[in-house]
Write a protein that binds this DNA or RNA. Sequence first.
DNA 1: GTTGACTCTCCAGTTACTGGAAAGATTACG
DNA 2: CGTAATCTTTCCAGTAACTGGAGAGTCAAC
Lengths: 134, 134
Amino acid sequence: MMHISAAAKTAELPVKTVRYYADIGLVSAPERSVAGYRTYDESAVRKLVFVRRAREFGFSIDECRELLSLYEDQNRSSADVKRIATKRLEEIAEKQRELQSLHDELAHLVDACKGDERPDCPIIDGLGWVVASE
Amino acid sequence: MMHISAAAKTAELPVKTVRYYADIGLVSAPERSVAGYRTYDESAVRKLVFVRRAREFGFSIDECRELLSLYEDQNRSSADVKRIATKRLEEIAEKQRELQSLHDELAHLVDACKGDERPDCPIIDGLGWVVASE
DNA sequence: GTTGACTCTCCAGTTACTGGAAAGATTACG
DNA sequence: CGTAATCTTTCCAGTAACTGGAGAGTCAAC
């Protein structure tokens, strides 16, 4: 049984974030003290850790909500979980491809740029290139 | 001289976004018609295209603002531009590294998961792993 | 008994838009 | 010339996931 700062510290989350998660009903404090302080038990802290990890993996809050209900569900099938994780994996791969072409294109422009004191610059030209032919 | 929808279409941006860019003073319409309609000339549209391209490259609005002032500055040095672009390139590379380790870690969990009807699931266990040893 | 640390709620701001309402302007058609 | 459709305006609100701060109450220590 601990107050919010101890729970936050244990879960390695900012206090503000823990309070936020409680507000949106993602991970509520199981109890309140007489003074109204949120009180967390081990199980709640475990959920906070779970959510932090899932967030680090790029799962959205809504996906966390879904995962959390699976996490809590003793009867879930691992297939349900795998479906969500696989979807996320594909999104990551897609993002990687995008970043790669972005990187290549920008690197190409940077390479072509002398970086001197003169005003002509292939980067600027490259960014404006769509109408450069006008 | 064209109204907002033509400018937006030419620049391949939503009308809403063009209006937004005007609101925040990023790319203003050079004129207003008698009725108060925003009126764009070729130069303004060119700036809109420039901003769209820069945004596609992941530059923030503030970076776009900076790049745009360089774009408009006949006396800029290409070094100024190269500095901003290089910084962005490093950010992209860093993001790529993060995504890679994310991908590897999650892929590992997905691989380990049978995806059957049984409740035990290495993905769930992997997400909760920090406190799993408790 | 009062200082300092902790907690509460509520409100505002962040980024870069996007959606919608209500109202006026313009254009197209008959 | 009327009117219906389309376009434009402003303003307000919402998105995602927090973060910061104000003002007030609470708790532990010296």
